[in-house]
Nucleic acid binder design. Structure first.
Lengths: 251, 251
DNA sequence: CGAACTTCTGAGCGGCCTCTGAGCGGGGTC
DNA sequence: GACCCCGCTCAGAGGCCGCTCAGAAGTTCG
């Protein structure tokens, strides 16, 4: 379909779209301009239409105009708290999905009830992969996104990943991964046959406040190789001076 | 059937629908906007069409328009009491199912008369799993819902749960569970092969006013393991950093 | 009124995960 | 062919996560 061909991510992947093929609309609400900027960029990279707001009042104004499919909402806002905004948003658009951003230690007190409505939350500091993945999950479950691929399952060669069950298999064999390993592999699998630099990987898979060096990426690539490539034809390849690629084995 | 395919819950399960395949219609009547919001979200998550009202007058207005299959009705309302609203509702739609919300120490005698008529009640504070389960039971018994699955029996692998009899068996053996254990297992069984975070579990299985920490979930998971997995091939799995999954053994 | 049960808190502990540092090997370059 | 740099891997420290035990408080039931 023409409209599909025209709506792709910057990475060349087909974008997750609304049922009618138009880009998904997302509103980012955070009072930290740097963070809002990073999030906005990452979501645009997914091929979505994104707008940002710095406080609750602005959020409502933009929401009325944009009628977003999803909202990324900081719980701590300068004027009101995120939960009041949530209620107003639901009046503007009852079926909107919400992904809350919250500080780690504030998690327990008022997050209660949030995931009950099908909404979700992510604790700061977070990785962009995690935010995007959660958002994709929300949209898919709410039926707002067209099922472009075969649901929540990623496949590259004989390697498969079920994001909901957090299950990874290679040639049918189950592979156990730690959280970071899982997210790294997910990033690779969502960008197959594409060289990803260590900087890119750090930016997407590790939290934005991570001060560490690119050395960690090498380390985790080596962990992944031991589990994913173990004794088999390798799928993870090093491109010296450039980064890493995941590709199906050449036949 | 096409209409079935289109009406699913956010979780991907097939929705409990009206006999003609359209979504069940539910009206929520509560003067606490937070509670109404949470209830509305949880019911929408089930794939139902939900509207909310804050008092008796508004409830009647909405009911005349929506003609709901079921009503969740707070007994204490700012303008009138729930029982007066009930009488009016029955004039609008005689076969409507009603689930009352009531304080724990409230008048048991009047409630007793109600449940004789086939309606049901839940005492505050309640868990969302309980409300949804009761509502499903009401609708099913009233013949308003199509039997999508095989009735009130849940099955995952060799684990079965009869929701009405409150009976759980594994490999034919009866398992005795406390109320909280039962609800936790029900939630897991209604979302098999799907990682559920501790926050999700807390939101659905524990009461909305529960201030406790995620630690309780770990504790109850360990209770369940002792009873459900006891000596057998485990079905309850921990996904570090993510949550828990229930899945049938050796797929 | 007591006994059994249920629910939740606190503390301790074991193990997994993450990251640092160091040494080594191999490719590329001069 | 020698050097240098990049990348790989091992070993280990530290922290965090999740599991379990034990007991207190509340509830139900006889």
């Amino acid at each position: 379909m023409l409209v599909d061909a025209m709506n792709t991510t910057r990475s060349g992947r087909p974008a997750l779209t609304r049922p009618d093929g138009t880009p998904l609309r997302v509103l980012v609400v955070d009072d930290d301009p740097d963070l809002a900027e990073v999030l906005t960029g990452a979501l645009r990279y997914e091929g979505w239409e994104v707008r940002a707001a710095g406080d609750g009042a602005a959020a409502l104004t933009v929401a009325r105009e944009l009628l977003p499919d999803a909202v990324i909402l900081d719980v701590m806002l300068p004027d009101t708290d995120g939960f009041a905004v949530l209620r107003s948003l639901h009046q503007v658009k009852p079926d909107v999905c919400v992904l809350f951003l919250t500080a780690r230690d504030a998690v327990e007190d008022r997050i209660a009830g949030i995931t009950a409505g099908g909404d979700d939350y992510v604790t700061k500091p977070f990785s962009l992969e995690e935010v995007v993945a959660r958002l994709r999950g929300l949209l898919r479950r709410a039926g707002m996104a067209r099922q472009q691929e075969d649901g929540p399952r990623l496949t590259v060669g004989d390697l498969t990943m079920d994001e909901e069950a957090r299950e990874v298999t290679r040639a049918g064999e189950l592979i156990e991964l730690s959280p970071t390993e899982f997210e790294l592999l997910r990033f690779l699998m969502r960008n197959p046959r594409r060289v990803l630099s260590k900087a890119q990987i750090l930016d997407r898979v590790w939290s934005y406040d991570f001060g560490g060096r690119a050395h960690v990426v090498e380390l985790y690539i080596s962990y992944l190789r031991k589990k994913v490539d173990a004794g088999r034809e390798p799928m993870i390849h090093t491109v010296r001076g450039a980064g890493y690629v995941l590709k199906p084995v050449a036949r």
